[in-house]
Simulated scan of single mutants.
Amino acid sequence: MSKDTLFAISLFPYLGFLWFLTRSQQTPKLALIGFYVLLIFVAVTIPAGIYAKIHYGEALANIDWLHGSAESFLSISNILVVLGFRQAILEAKKKETQP
């Protein structure tokens, strides 16, 4: 199985993951937004990879400016997830200390 096929197939379990997270209504809102932003990363990475192959004849990973731009969406996603869970932890601690 090629890496491209595996990448495409992996989208379905992730969509299921998002569905369950959203439906549970227990995930901090900002973290949930971060998990959804990961879909933007996927949506940007695919055309960027095609562009790299057509215009440069290289894999996306070999075109630094294009790869870095696409990966910035992954970084944004990670930051939102961390900030969302951090906020939830701080709120939980605050509730514990209040009488």
Rank of each mutant, 00 (worst) to 15 (best):
F20I: 06
T5W: 08
I46T: 09
I76D: 12
S75N: 11
H55I: 03
K94M: 01
Y14W: 01
S2C: 05
S10W: 00
K29C: 09
S10N: 11
S24R: 08
T27D: 12
V37A: 13
I40D: 14
G16R: 06
F73E: 06
V82K: 08
L15V: 02
E91N: 08
G84R: 10
S72L: 11
I40N: 10
L30F: 08
G68N: 11
F73N: 04
K53G: 09
N78C: 12
D4K: 13
K95G: 04
L38R: 15
R23S: 03
S69N: 04
L32G: 05
T27I: 12
L80H: 11
L15E: 11
F85S: 04
Y51N: 08
Y51G: 05
Y56M: 01
D4T: 05
T45P: 10
I63A: 07
I76H: 04
W19D: 11
T22E: 09
L74T: 07
S72K: 03
L21S: 15
T27H: 10
F17C: 15
A52M: 02
A52V: 00
T5A: 13
V37H: 11
V82S: 12
I89A: 13
E96P: 01
E71A: 13
V42W: 11
Y36D: 09
L18I: 12
E58W: 00
P28F: 03
I46L: 15
G16E: 06
F17A: 15
F85V: 07
T5Y: 06
I33R: 15
F12D: 07
F12E: 09
F35A: 14
G49H: 02
A59M: 00
F20Y: 09
V81T: 05
K94V: 00
I46P: 01
L32Q: 12
F85N: 01
F41S: 10
R86S: 10
G49K: 02
